[in-house]
Write a protein that binds this DNA or RNA. Sequence first.
RNA 1: GGGCGGUUAGCUCAGUUGGUUAGAGCGACUGUUUUACACACAGUAGGCCGGGGGUUCGAAUCCUCCACCGCUCACCA
Length: 712
Amino acid sequence: MDDKFLKPYNPQETEERIYKLWKKSGFFNPDNLPKRHEEPFTVIMPPPNANGHLHAGHALFITIEDIITRFERMRGKKALWVPGADHAGFETQIVYERELEKQGRSRFGMDPKQLYDEIMVFTLENKKHMEAEVSAMGASCDWSREKFTLDENIVRETQKTFEQMYDDNLVYRGNRIINWCPKHQTSLSDVETEFVEKKDPFYYIKYGPFTIATARPETKFGDKYVVMHPDDKRYKDYKDGQKLEVNWINGKITATVIKDAAIDMSFGTGVMTITPWHDAIDFEVAERHNLEKDQIIDWRGKLLPIAGEFAGMKITEARPKIVEKLKENGLLVKIDDDYKHNVRVCYKCGTSIEPQIKAQWFVKMKPLAKLAIDAVESDKIKFIPENYKKIFLYWMEKTIDWNISRQIIWGIPIPAKLCEKCGHGFPDLKSKMNQCPKCGGSVTADIDTFDTWFSSGQWPYLALGYPNSDDFETYYPTDIMETGHDLIFRWVPRMVIFGLYRTKKIPFNTVYLHGLVNDAKGKKMSKSKENVINPLDLSKKYGTDALRIGLIVGNTPGTDLALSEDRIRGYKNFANKLWNIARFILSQEKPPNNKNKLDEELVNEFNTLAKDITRDMENCRFHIAAEKIYAYVWHRFADEIIEKSKPARPDDSGHSGGKQTVNRATLYYILENSLKLLHPFMPFVTEEIWSSFTKATNKQGNLLMIESWPFT
RNA sequence: GGGCGGUUAGCUCAGUUGGUUAGAGCGACUGUUUUACACACAGUAGGCCGGGGGUUCGAAUCCUCCACCGCUCACCA
């Protein structure tokens, strides 16, 4: 017996050594696997953001994907798991802005090149941490194929997709209303905003013969159109296009009556004035009737000269003063203090989104969504859990054009030129156009970058080196995309669309969505609540294997998990239990030879279980598989079978006990195959025991990692 | 307001297509230092499976209504 069994299992002393052993073997790279591994199996890792440390959600997805990969590898597949790192445009820039703040600096006014270079240094540093942490989780991914979203060829292909979509009339430049975050000074797509319920005063204001209602009086300076429903009998005397003299905030103006069916007659007074530059509905009304649009609020969220004496003020500062003036002028009818409404905010900082009109690049979604809908409806792409299919389709059906321009430096540049004269925009990947092809005017380079999801949406094929790569030919479409259910809108649909558009193939056969990892009480982890559990701390304290299986058992796909330290501690005990099982079996003087008899019933029982577990693994029911093998090893194998195998002791009355009822060969058989079944879940301790097992049975050589799965 | 999910032991959760006395981990309690393991073993307590109605020989599981919780989407100014 190995001396190592004299002490309890010690993960700290084992894990790094084992990981090096695996890495040195070369088997993370499917090219190096033995001949029996023929059929490719591919998982692309959702690239973690290279801007900080791993959190519990990362630990979960690494565990699940590693389980899948190790299982398929042992079953004889040519298993490839491609790791990656995401530059994470907007998110990383925000993280770095906080760093700057700490140093008393700000990105505004910084030389863009300088800022970009600094963020690159920061990102590459964090990328190293991230890689070390992924490794510490036991990830058997092929590091030789690791990709970064800013790798030269990935940037090039992302830009090519843009050009191709422009040529196919799927990308256009539009001067449209967009979501503007005044804090971060960039536009955002709809999925990058959230709604929060706010209670604000609701002001009823006199507008000529009408009373209008608004929560935002500060936007009303430029309101020169008053809109009502064409069927509203209360206002039947007013005709569409009719002009009225109106006494307004800063004096007399001429207002025009507009009739539009978008008005809800039952809300407020049934009349509203519109602010097309700063409101999506108003923008649409203005577009329909071809009305003028004036900007009231600047990009920093301050009032423009149109606001007269209030120009230059921030909205929050100006609002009470404006209300005061309305009151003085006798325009304020009443204030409703109990008005609740939903306000769109930036998903990162919670700042109220200020809609603005801006020229941006948009992806025309309808024809692309059609491709995705067809693929999912015909079940070419399968969802786990299944109900996400419906959610996916629901979102795809109603998707609107996607703004892909971001006013941030950290990202992939949009390779386009913009005409200074006519505003025409067009792709220019090689940057050789100096004149507008439409009007001959001079052009400047677009300084915006792509929405990060524009590039990460292309990840499955770009990570495989598309186009012109053997890997793409061999490993695409990938088998399974495993990611968090929170990315069902932000990421999954984009991957399906880009995959179908660019490669004409689905990017993956299955989407597996895991739930969020919450704290022990099921509450969302957040820094402000101080309930963040660092997975690496748990891994150090209880061992990575304990953390891994603790994240899996009882964790149904799509359902959030409450992670408690007690739970992980329990599985540390299990790792040690397994250790002691091995110690006991391997410590008996001689291993059985092949002629030793196996106990048929026990072997059958085990084989039935192994087949059952294999079925669970095939169907991604890892939570069930893990629990079954856990319960068997501890409560059946250790508590009953091994106990029965012990030579009975004489009882108190001097009679000898019953005879030994389990053959040692059976114990070896069950141990060997249990280690295999457990390996995907607990790779370190099983591999460590395996080396002793093979030594004891004179079958040294193979790593457990590439042993055959029982009953494939 | 729309959509989705949840409600099972003190806590956190399993329970594949309806099938015998409903399970696990943690926690609690009672014993046991027995020669693999006290990071252990033996055992105990604890649940009208959210509520009402229905389908069925049989329902935690299927249908329906209701309540509460969570998530998500949404242009009532």
